[in-house]
């Protein structure tokens, strides 16, 4: 059986299509966006509003093409938003209003 056929797209161990890809070892400086998303996740976790596994689930729910296109913390803010909506901490109407007000 080809296990590759059944895997979820985030489940990357040994996956053929990346085996010939060189590893980018260069340092990538974190941006203010990155640090802020990282910190918000930690604050929400400390307040018991989101577990690590909820964050992971939300990241895994991102469609494959977007998953590989988005940066690491771009995936996180999507997942954080998804989880805050699911838990009812924020509503879609509130978010849309905030987006329009920008």
């Amino acid at each position: 059986m080809d296990k590759d056929l059944f895997r979820a797209h985030h489940d990357l161990g040994g996956v053929s299509k990346f085996l010939c890809e060189p590893i980018d070892k260069e340092p990538h400086i974190l941006t203010d966006f990155d640090r802020e998303v990282d910190a918000i996740r930690q604050v929400l976790a400390a307040k018991k509003l989101m577990t690590t596994d909820e964050l992971r689930r939300g990241i895994e729910a991102i469609p494959e093409e977007d998953y590989h296109r988005l940066s690491y913390y771009q995936r996180w803010i999507r997942s954080i938003t998804d989880n805050m909506l699911r838990r009812g901490v924020v509503t879609e109407a509130e978010l849309r209003a905030a987006l329009e007000g920008q």
């Binding site: 802020e36 929400l44 913390y73 771009q74 803010i77 901490v89 905030a98 007000g101 920008q102």
Partner: peptide
């Protein structure tokens, strides 16, 4: 867009007193 999403989520969470 991720930057807009962050700004919106942050603003709503702060407005609601979550953080």
């Amino acid at each position: 867009d991720s930057a807009a999403l962050l700004a919106a989520v942050r603003r709503v969470l702060i407005a609601k007193g979550v953080l």
